[in-house]
Design a protein around this nucleic acid. Structure first.
Length: 907
RNA sequence: GCCCCCGUGGCGAAACGGUAGACGCAGUGGACUUAAAAUCCAUCGCCUUUUGGCGUGCGGGUUCGAGUCCCGCCGGGGGUACCA
């Protein structure tokens, strides 16, 4: 038996090398980004000192109890290679990773395992950190945090406080020259007090409660009544999507009721124009921009369906504004399923008695409804069904055009000017034709501006335990008060039972309960808010998960600053447009990588907060994320047996029968499916299994070579050996497997030199454009060339190792060291390509669109020479049928395209 | 339903509107081995004996030339506001 050479690149050796370099990177602070000032310096103790910053950002992970599968690191490997590439180019790279640790899954995992969510999330975070660092992913460890940390939560609440204390003035000019700006609510109060702005009732005659109501209708974070889908059986509120057509919960099939709840909202509609306009300048995938544009609300028209007594009628409206046409009665589709239930008593009674007058209904609805309709009716017009339980419905037309400041309670003025009421339900005959509708719109002066409608304000309250508490208390008269900044953070009380309270599934009178309301000691507090000690009740709703994820990228810049949520100096250095000139006037992080599933909500909410903080003078950039890149998903095969049960994918063997691949599990034939990777499909592969079996570098190369980073791809374990062979071959080309010493020659032939330069040129471009798959293919071509040589030229080996370093950093560091270099590759300059001179290139000659002949020509050949050369070819003359070509297109040195006379005639 | 994306060999894929299938996996043949593994070399879309013909989900169109651009379908994925 022959022993393997002692210096073969085996998984065991790979592990040894990987742990060695991971330790060394940590010791040398290779991933430390340098701040402008303060304690955070780079590994050499230097501040930024004018170096160019480059900020790389991942959509930070949710520390799930299920652990990572091989799909999770895809985006992190991508940001790691970009970070390493940029470091080699001399940038001061900021790359950190925090954890998004509040939220429903964390709460549910904790409930399922009978532990406190703080404990489970901490354990999950520790496990995730271990997995990620074993893959050699370089994050600045000093800048990591979880959204649940009290120090972080404090600033999330502080930002909420700023939103609550601000209003949007559409007329106010911003420093950047634009119109419309968030301003402190004090400015508004001054306007009311001075009479510059008038309210219906004189300001000085209003009670505190009335004033509070008026201000509430201006605040960017405000309280109002909103409708939710309440499922007593589950004890939770559901998204529309989670409710079936029959009005049951998707999970459990329990009844769902429409409930009006007093909740917090964010006035994102005030920023609709700016969110739309600033998209243009961002370096985002056009598809994501398109999704945001559609979400915010440009639309070319709507289809409206009306269930009428005389039949089920559909009309196309070129503008949603046409819904204001007197013939139409429209109700948001989301309200339809339980409309009578959701409506006030008077309306419901009429409804039950049959065929109420819509005008009457509308009037009584409005009278009994304390808030402006544009707010209280959630303006989902995407469906536009005027049908309830299959019947024609009385509906009203509301003005859903975003007007952030509709005025105070009961105020009735211009805001309802475009609301029309009608006297009878529509019949198909009474509906206008498209033409009539368009004519009417013209007459009424309804134009493009009114087309925007979709976007609605952001519902910001959750009836859950595991989220940020609001910094809000209520006095005994029901008026809300903001807690002073000195009272932050408001911590969650420890609650023995934090589960949501569920009810009898049919209990339609039940209401969603906030778990925090059970903690009496916490809810009832005595505070001195400036007018002596008084009793207050705390707000018991919590914030949604989005809150923490809206601003985490800012905290990376100055994670320990306890007097600012982000240090202004660091903000100006890392994020301002000045330091990122390519971003135009917008600024923001240089690169944001994450899944496309966040294309709308997260990215829209974060942009909104960023803009508010910019308006208020806390930030220097108008946009948070200048460049966005969406990586694809890793999917996997799953296998079912004859009974349709999933079998462990790892135990499935494939055989070839009759030229076709068939699959067996324990001798039984199984069927192959394709889907998400996870425990339920028994097809989960973890990074731990991968680095144990192959090493982290092989895993990284495989993930980056599977296909374009932006595309989803199936996991195929068999293919990993290709990446492993590539690294082994590279190792063997540089290292003597018997001695472990480098074996390189100092000479290089011209063919290898030419290929090397071509490779450097191509790989550099691929790395810049985030195409690691084609970069790796080019490096394999170069490596295959090196394999064919009697010995590897040193210059080729060194360039190769530098170019592969961002993707397979450990093996490259080891090779670099064995080649005689003492310092890490982390800051070694990226190789530059020399001139590539081709002696000959292949030109193709096409006749009537088909390739008929190939020619070897010098790359500098002119059009006339190339054409002449092509027409001299015997084969070409034959295909032309002996005649002159009818047309010649010549693109030297690659293409000559000839059209024959007969070919032209056929056309 | 609505919005966005994707569809190329047995498989993962490559291809500024210009030689379709780079690179990798699997397969096939060979070298080396007592043998196997590993390694190295060759081959590898389909049809045809060949000249050649056909091929990028389907049907049209634009173009000298279409995987790529346009129109209409079919199939798959993501989002749809309380999963994040």
């Amino acid at each position: 038996m022959i022993e393997a050479p002692s210096w073969r690149y085996t998984p065991a050796l790979a592990e040894k090398i990987e742990l060695k370099w991971q330790k060394r990177w940590a010791e040398e602070g290779c991933f430390y980004a340098a701040n402008v000032e303060g304690p955070l310096t780079d590994g050499q103790g230097r501040h930024a000192d004018g170096r160019k910053p480059y900020t790389v950002l991942d959509m930070f992970p949710f520390p799930s109890g299920k652990g990572l599968h091989v799909g999770h690191p895809l985006g992190y490997i991508a940001t790691d290679f970009v970070s390493r590439f940029k470091r080699m180019q001399g940038y001061n790279v900021l790359h950190a990773l925090g954890f998004d640790a509040f939220g429903l899954p964390a709460e549910q995992f904790a409930i399922a395992t009978g532990q406190h969510p703080r404990k489970t999330t901490e354990e999950n975070i520790a496990n995730m950190r271990r997995q990620l660092s074993r893959l050699g992913l370089g994050f600045d460890p000093r800048r990591s945090f979880a959204t649940t940390d009290p120090e972080y939560m404090k600033w999330t609440q502080w930002i909420f406080a700023r939103l609550y204390s601000s209003w949007y003035d559409p007329e106010f000019s911003r420093p950047d020259g634009g119109r419309g700006c968030a301003r402190p609510i004090e400015d508004l109060i001054l306007q009311f007090e001075s009479g510059e702005r008038r309210s219906k009732k004189p300001w000085e005659k209003m009670s505190e409660r009335e004033k509070s109501g008026v201000l509430n209708s201006f605040r960017l974070a405000y309280i109002s009544d909103s409708f939710v889908n309440w499922c007593p059986g589950l004890g939770t509120v559901l998204a529309n999507e989670e409710v079936t057509r029959e009005g049951k919960s998707e999970r459990g099939n329990y009844p769902v009721y429409r409930k009006r709840l007093r909740q917090w909202s964010m006035r994102i509609t005030a920023y609709a124009d700016r969110l739309l306009e600033d998209l243009d300048g961002l370096d985002w995938p056009e598809t994501v921009k398109a999704m945001q544009r559609n979400w915010i609300g440009k639309c070319e028209g709507v289809k409206a369906r009306f269930a009428c007594p005389g039949g089920d009628a559909e009309v196309f409206l070129p503008s949603p504004s046409l819904l204001f046409h007197p013939s139409f009665l429209v109700v948001p589709s989301s309200m339809a399923p339980s409309l009578p239930e959701a409506w006030p008593e008077g309306c419901r009674k009429e409804w039950e008695e049959g065929s109420p007058s819509p005008r009457h209904l509308f009037a009584s609805f409005k009278a009994s409804h304390p808030y402006p309709l544009a707010h209280s009716m959630d303006g989902v017009f995407s469906g536009l069904f005027a049908e309830v339980a299959g019947e024609a419905v009385p509906v009203f037309i509301s003005d859903y055009v975003s007007e952030p400041h509709l005025g105070s309670e009961g105020e009735e003025d211009a805001k309802f000017a475009r609301i029309h009421s009608i006297d009878s339900s529509p019949s198909p005959e009474s509906l206008p034709t498209e033409e009539e509708a368009a004519k009417w719109a013209e007459k009424e002066g309804i134009g493009q501006k009114e087309r925007r409608y979709r976007l609605r304000d952001w519902l910001f309250s959750r009836q859950r335990y595991w989220g940020e508490p609001f910094p809000i208390v209520y006095s005994e008269d029901g008026v809300e008060h903001l807690l002073p900044d000195s009272a932050l953070p408001v911590r969650l009380p420890s609650l023995p039972d934090y589960r949501p309270e569920s009810f009898e599934p049919e209990d339609s009178s039940s209401m969603p309960q906030a778990p925090l309301s059970r903690s009496r000691d916490w809810v009832e507090v005595e505070l001195d808010l400036g007018d002596g000690p008084k009793k207050y009740r705390r707000e018991t709703n919590t914030m949604p998960n989005w809150a923490g994820s809206c601003w985490y990228y800012l905290r990376y810049l100055s994670p320990k600053d306890d007097s600012h949520f982000v240090n202004p100096e660091e903000d100006r250095y890392f994020l301002s447009a000045f330091h990122n000139p390519s971003s135009g006037a917008l600024g923001g992080v240089d690169l944001y990588v994450g899944g496309v599933e966040h294309a709308v909500l997260h990215l829209l909410y974060a942009r909104f907060w960023h803009k508010v903080l910019y308006d208020l003078g806390y930030l220097s950039s108008r946009e948070p994320f200048f460049k966005l890149f969406n990586q694809g998903y890793v999917q996997a095969y799953a296998y079912t047996d004859s009974r349709g049960q999933y079998v462990p994918a790892a135990g499935v063997e494939s055989r070839f029968e009759g030229g076709k691949e068939v699959f067996y599990f324990e001798g039984e034939k199984v069927n192959r499916e394709f889907g998400k990777m996870g425990k339920s499909l028994k097809n989960m592969v973890t990074p731990d299994e991968m680095y144990e079996a192959y090493g982290a570098d092989t895993f990284r190369v495989y993930e980056m070579s599977m296909g374009p980073l932006s595309e989803s791809r199936p996991w195929n374990l068999k293919d990993v050996s290709g990446s492993q062979r590539f690294l082994q071959r590279l190792w063997r080309n540089v290292i003597d497997e018997e001695t472990g010493e480098a074996k390189v020659s100092e000479e290089m032939d011209s063919e290898t030199s030419r290929l090397l330069n071509k490779t450097i040129e191509g790989v550099t471009l691929d790395m810049e454009e985030m195409r690691p798959n084609t970069a790796i293919a080019k490096l394999i071509v170069l490596n295959n060339r090196l394999t064919s040589l009697p010995s590897t030229p040193r210059a080729a080996a060194e360039a190769m190792v530098k170019m592969l370093f961002p993707i397979a950093p450990h093996i490259c560091e080891e090779l670099w060291e064995k080649l005689g270099h003492a310092s890490t590759l982390s800051f070694t300059p990226w190789p530059e390509a020399g001139k590539v001179e081709e002696e000959e290139v292949t030109a193709v000659v096409q006749v009537d669109g088909k390739v008929r002949c190939r020619l070897q020509v010098p790359p500098s050949i002119g059009a006339e020479d190339l054409e002449k050369l092509a027409l001299d070819q015997e084969a070409v003359r034959q295909w032309l049928g002996g005649e002159d070509p009818a047309k010649v297109i010549c693109r030297p040195p690659k293409i000559v395209s000839l059209v024959s006379r007969s070919g032209r005639k056929e056309k």
